[in-house]
């Protein structure tokens, strides 16, 4: 691996990365480890890393390729949590990731006091597939941001792409780029790209379509689904894991068949279980190998939750999610 990283230049945000190293070193002895990102197999990919020794701190990095929402590791088996009550684990979060932590705290899956949060105000993460689609790259050797442009160097030279065109869809509709919870901030807060009210553009666009058009759209998209369940496994709030409807045999919800109806069923239940819980971190969509816009379904449900209940998940750790409350006097429920 060392070979690779010597050969390739990374899209590392040096100042932020250095600051992160300093901040981590300062508290590492008190932590039972920290989860962050390190360079992946090529210049376009990072990968999550767990660090608990000072000599590994240099592996941590921050860059717009740090796409993964790491909060799932705190709750999915085996959970990355401190060994005993008094201690903490460290976690690096972007704005969107921090909302998952809040939501998990709201749902009592996590205690804030067990975490030391390194918050990283984020200017957007790069969607490598989008970049590859725009510029077919071979042997990427370096990726940099230069002002309003993403510069990628490969075996054929340097290519550039407007920064906005390299970003993941979730980032283009992000109203919370600054971590909502943190113990330290790794850099200065950034200006949100949009206001929350502007986040549901694609949902509204879909709503304009006729039922038939919508059905055709989703049928074509879901037809590609290979039922790998990466979308489920990557979601920090999909906490049933191995007791999911796709695995239970009694009652039996789904067959192994590849028909559209099976896939619809899975995605509908997956989405419904996240209604008013999903923080729109976009992980499900990012991890989908078949590039299916699966977050869009959850966006629609969240839009409804906002309209009807005026609620948004993962903002205020003191609020109880509406679908976790039950008020016998409530109307229309």
């Amino acid at each position: 691996m060392s070979l690779l990283s010597e050969r390739l230049g990374w899209i590392v945000f040096e100042a932020e990365t250095k600051r992160l190293h300093e901040l981590v070193k300062a508290v590492l002895p008190e932590l039972d480890g920290i989860v962050g990102w390190e360079q992946g197999f090529d210049a376009l990919h990072a990968t999550p890393v767990f660090v608990n020794r000072e000599e590994d701190v240099h592996r941590l990095m921050w860059s717009p390729l740090c796409v993964h929402n790491l909060s799932g590791y705190l709750v999915k088996t085996p959970p990355f949590l401190p060994r005993d009550e008094g201690r903490k684990v460290g976690i690096c979060v972007k704005g969107c990731d921090s909302r998952s932590l809040v939501a998990l705290e709201q749902e009592k899956f996590l205690g804030r006091d067990r975490l030391h949060i390194f918050g990283i105000p984020c200017e957007g993460t790069v969607d490598w597939r989008r970049v590859m689609k725009k510029i077919p790259l071979r042997g990427v050797s370096s990726v940099r941001r230069e002002g309003p442009e993403l510069k990628v160097e490969d075996s054929r030279g340097v290519h550039s792409l407007p920064w906005e065109e390299s970003l993941a869809r979730r980032c283009l509709r992000c109203a919370h780029p600054n971590p909502l919870v943190h113990d330290v901030l790794v850099r200065d807060p950034v200006e949100p790209r949009i206001k929350k009210d502007e986040a549901y553009g694609l949902v509204e666009e879909m709503d304009q379509k006729s039922l038939e058009e919508r059905l055709a759209f989703w049928s074509a998209e879901l037809d590609r689904c290979i039922r790998c369940y990466a979308c489920r496994n990557a979601c920090p709030l999909c906490v049933c894991q191995d007791r999911c409807i796709v695995e239970t045999r009694d009652p039996k919800w789904l067959t192994q068949k590849m028909g559209i109806s099976e896939k619809f069923m899975f995605h509908m239940i997956h989405s419904l279980h996240l209604a008013g819980r999903c923080t729109e971190c976009g992980e499900c969509e990012r991890v989908c190998p078949m590039e299916i816009p699966v977050t869009l379904m959850k966006e629609k449900l969240n839009q409804i939750t906002r309209e009807i209940l005026g609620y948004e998940a993962g903002i205020d750790s003191q609020l109880v999610p509406p679908l976790l409350t039950f008020n016998p006097g409530e109307h229309e429920l």
Partner: peptide
């Protein structure tokens, strides 16, 4: 593999992965 999500992507996209399940409907 600490960071593995336990999804099926790596096996489903692999040209040499052949393990299968047998179920009745």
């Amino acid at each position: 593999v600490n960071q593995c999500l336990g999804c099926g992507v790596c096996t489903y996209v692999c040209p040499t992965c052949y393990c299968f399940n047998i179920t009745d409907e």
